[in-house]
Write a protein that binds this DNA or RNA. Structure first.
Lengths: 209, 209
DNA sequence: CCTTTCTGGTACGAAGTCGTACCAGTTTGC
DNA sequence: GCAAACTGGTACGACTTCGTACCAGAAAGG
C-alpha cells in the first residue's frame, strides 16, 4: 500500500521532515520577531516558510508549540552571548553581562523582540518557560559573582534575590534601550551603568558609616 | 419623543451610567485578576457585573479599553502603597519601597495579578501604558534616593538607569515571590533583600579597594 | 391607572482562524 | 514508461467572539 517513507529529492523522510521543521522555526523567529506573535497565524507562518499548512501540523500541534521551540532557540543564542566571558572581578562580571546582553540585542533585533516582548503574557506555559530561563541565568550569574568574592558566601535565599535583581534590572534596561531605539549608544549606556553603580556604592558606603 | 434621560430608581441618567461603568470596572478587576485577561470576554465581564452586554459598549469600545481603565485604577492603588512613606536614608527609602510593594501584593492578590501578569503583552498600547507607569515610579524613586545623598547628584541618564534597575529588580522579586505563593514570608524576604544589598556593597567596596 | 422609557434576556449575522480534505501535478523506484 | 507516493494549492465546515437588534416585563411620572 504505502512505502511509509521513501527517498525524495535525495533525502529520506526523516531528513525532509527535519528540514521542514527547521524552515518553520526560522519562519517563526522571523515572523514573531517582526510582525509579532499576536499578529501571526498558522497560515502566515507556512507562507513565510514556503510550505503547505498541512506540514505545520506535521511538526507542531499549535502555534504556541512553535513559539516555545522558537524561544528555546532564542534563549540558547542569548546564553552564548551573555555567559560567554568570564571574570574574577565582580564589577567585571556585571559589566560583561550587560555588555553581552546589549550587544546581542542590537546585533539580533529580531530575536531580541521575541525575548523582550513577544513571549510575555502568551499563556501560563510560556510564562513559566520564560521565568524558568530567567531564573537559570540569574542563578548562574549570582553564583559567579559569589565566587569572585573572598568573604562570606551568599545563602540560597540571598542568591535567589541577587539573581532576581540582576535579571530584572538587566531586562528592564534592555527593554528601555530597545524602545528608545538603542539610544544612547551601547558604550555610552554601559558607562552610565558603571557610573550609577559607583554612585550607589558611594551612597551605600556613606549610609553605612 | 424621548426624554433622553429621566430619573430612574432615584438616579439621573448620568448617575446610572456612571454606576454601571464602575460596576464594569469592578467586574474587570475581579475577572482579569482571577481568570486572567486572556480568558475574559465582553460577555463574561457583563455577566460578572450583572449587566446586559449593551451596557458594556455604553462605556467602553473594546475589552482592551476596559483593561486600560482597570490598570489605571490598579496603578493608582499601588502608587499609594509604594510611594507613601518617606525617608532620609537611602537604604530606608529602598526598604520602604520593597516593603510597600510586597505588602500591597499580598494584601491585594487580585490587583497584583493584573499588574504583574495580565497587562503584559496584550498590545502595543497596553505595553506602552505599562512602561510609562513604571518609568514614572522609577524616576520618582531615583530622584528621592538622589535627594537623600549629600554628595554628587545623578545625571539624567544615570537617574534613568537607576530607575530601570529599581523597577526591574522590584518587579522581578515581586513576581518571583507571588509565583512561589508568598514564600518566604514577607519580613523574611525583606531581611534577605537587606542582607543581599549589604553583601553587594561589601563586595563592591572590596573590589574598589 | 396608563403611557413612556428603561432594563435584561435572547437571538442573529459578521468576521477570523483553525484543522482537515480534496485534487492536480511532479518525482521517484522498479 | 508506469504505478505509487509525495508535494503544494485551494476549498470547506467548525468554532468562537464580536457587536447589534429585537422583545417582553418592570419602573417611574403625570
Amino acid at each position: 500500500m504505502s512505502d511509509q517513507g521513501r527517498p525524495y529529492a535525495g533525502a529520506s523522510r526523516e531528513e525532509r521532515e527535519y528540514a521542514r521543521r527547521e524552515q518553520l522555526v526560522a519562519a517563526g523567529i522571523s515572523l514573531f520577531g517582526t510582525q509579532g506573535y499576536r499578529a501571526a497565524t498558522v497560515g502566515a507562518v507556512c507562507q513565510e516558510a514556503g510550505l503547505n499548512k498541512r506540514y505545520f501540523y506535521e511538526s507542531f500541534a499549535t502555534l504556541e508549540d512553535l513559539l516555545c521551540e522558537v524561544y528555546e532557540r532564542v534563549v540558547a543564542d542569548l546564553r552564548g552571548s551573555v555567559l560567554a566571558g568570564g571574570g574574577d572581578d565582580p564589577s567585571r562580571v556585571l559589566h560583561g553581562f550587560m555588555a553581552g546582553f546589549l550587544t546581542w540585542a542590537q546585533a539580533n533585533p529580531v530575536m531580541a523582540r521575541v525575548h523582550l516582548f513577544e513571549v510575555l503574557g502568551v499563556s501560563e506555559r510560556v510564562d513559566e518557560l520564560y521565568r524558568s530561563h530567567g531564573r537559570t541565568i540569574g542563578d548562574e550569574l549570582a553564583s559567579r559573582l559569589s565566587a569572585t568574592v573572598t568573604g562570606p558566601q551568599l545563602t540560597a535565599g540571598q542568591q535567589r534575590v541577587l539573581g532576581d535583581v540582576l535579571i530584572g534590572a538587566g531586562l528592564q534596561m534592555a527593554v528601555d534601550w530597545v524602545i528608545s531605539e538603542y539610544q544612547p549608544p551601547r558604550d555610552e549606556l554601559l558607562n552610565e551603568i558603571d557610573a550609577t553603580l559607583g554612585w550607589v556604592l558611594a551612597a551605600g558606603l556613606a549610609a553605612l558609616g
